[in-house]
């Protein structure tokens, strides 16, 4: 394993059976390689399969075919080496902020002293700006603050990989920008290889070193990868003022518009292929029945 191929996603496919018993590939032959410490945004229309890719990477959703390798090891299930932040922080309501973070830390640092574990929790809560809210319960915090706890909980595991599934989707614009900066600061410091699922083109560009554009499903795959050459650490005003920012933005929007424009024809073509496959199977079964001798 080299740092240039820290995460290798090869021919990743996820299929579910339809009512006719045929496999329908939601994601098909998805290929992507991430360098160590790289941040990749995955962008695409709602329902295209972005989160399916992420949950497979997290080990929460078994793959149908292909392979997923992180740091030289095949992904076989969920593990603390791949931390996930979902759109909803899903905090345990009867626990304080500190206790919510400690829950995972205890699992990952079983041999640490109580003082060491406490220090880890306090450190990560402070870098997400919650040093003064460690004893608060989720009900006492805003959505943005709860999501900060979710981020601290994930980073405190010191994961090899961070998986962010539309983590700011439920937040207002100001809180969203604030949290984007919080995460970027953490990633600049910790150098964690990260995948961010989003459908926001500005977020995709601002956060990532590369943007992976997904085609529409079914059989969604990588359409194009765009390198984002802006230096880190990133300052929002500088990024927005960059002379090429709007070229990258236009490229992403153009991709999404074309996908939307051709959505219905893509689905129709897929359904037609499936119908033809069913007809072929039916006629093959009929031929087999005709050639089999009648049982007595």
């Amino acid at each position: 394993m080299s740092d240039n191929r820290y995460v290798e996603i090869a021919n990743l496919t996820k299929a579910y059976p339809n009512p006719f018993g045929q496999d329908v590939a939601v994601v098909k032959d998805f290929n992507l390689i991430l360098r160590k410490g790289e941040v990749v945004s995955v962008i695409g229309h709602s329902g295209c399969g972005k989160s399916t890719v992420l949950t497979m990477l997290a080990g929460l959703n078994p793959i149908s075919s292909g392979s997923l390798v992180v740091d030289g090891r095949e992904v076989a299930g969920p593990g603390p080496d791949r931390a996930v932040v979902f759109q909803a922080p899903c905090l345990l309501p009867w626990m304080t902020t500190f206790e919510n973070v400690m829950l995972g830390v205890k699992q990952v640092y079983p041999h640490g002293t109580p003082a060491e574990r406490r220090q880890i929790c306090e450190y990560y809560l402070s870098i997400v700006g919650l040093a003064d809210s460690m004893r608060k319960y989720p009900r006492e915090m805003s959505g943005g603050m709860q999501q900060r706890v979710g981020i601290a909980r994930a980073i405190a595991l010191r994961p090899r990989m961070l998986l962010l599934d539309e983590p700011f989707g439920r937040l207002d614009s100001l809180t969203r920008m604030d949290l984007q900066d919080v995460i970027l600061e953490i990633l600049d410091r910790e150098k964690i290889t990260t995948v961010v699922i989003t459908h926001d083109v500005d977020e995709a560009i601002y956060m990532a070193d590369r943007v992976c554009m997904m085609t529409n499903g079914p059989e969604a795959s990588v359409g194009q990868v765009l390198e984002i050459p802006f230096e880190r650490p990133r300052i929002r005003a500088d990024v927005l003022d960059h002379p090429n920012y709007y070229d990258f933005r236009a490229c992403l929007l153009s991709f999404l518009e074309k996908q939307e424009h051709n959505k219905s024809s893509h689905v129709e073509a897929f359904e037609e292929r499936q119908r033809q496959e069913r007809e072929l199977q039916t006629s093959a079964s009929d031929r087999q029945l005709e050639t089999e001798p009648a049982s007595v």
């Binding site: 290929n31 992507l32 390689i33 990588v222 359409g223 194009q224 990868v225 765009l226 070229d247 490229c251």
Partner: peptide, 28 residues
Amino acid sequence: ELAVTSGHYQGLPSFEFITRYTRFPKGA
């Protein structure tokens, strides 16, 4: 991934620019 290693463009400045930052995995 496939990246452009050389190219010649006539009347396509935006296309040429975005191509420099574009990569295609196998099948894309």
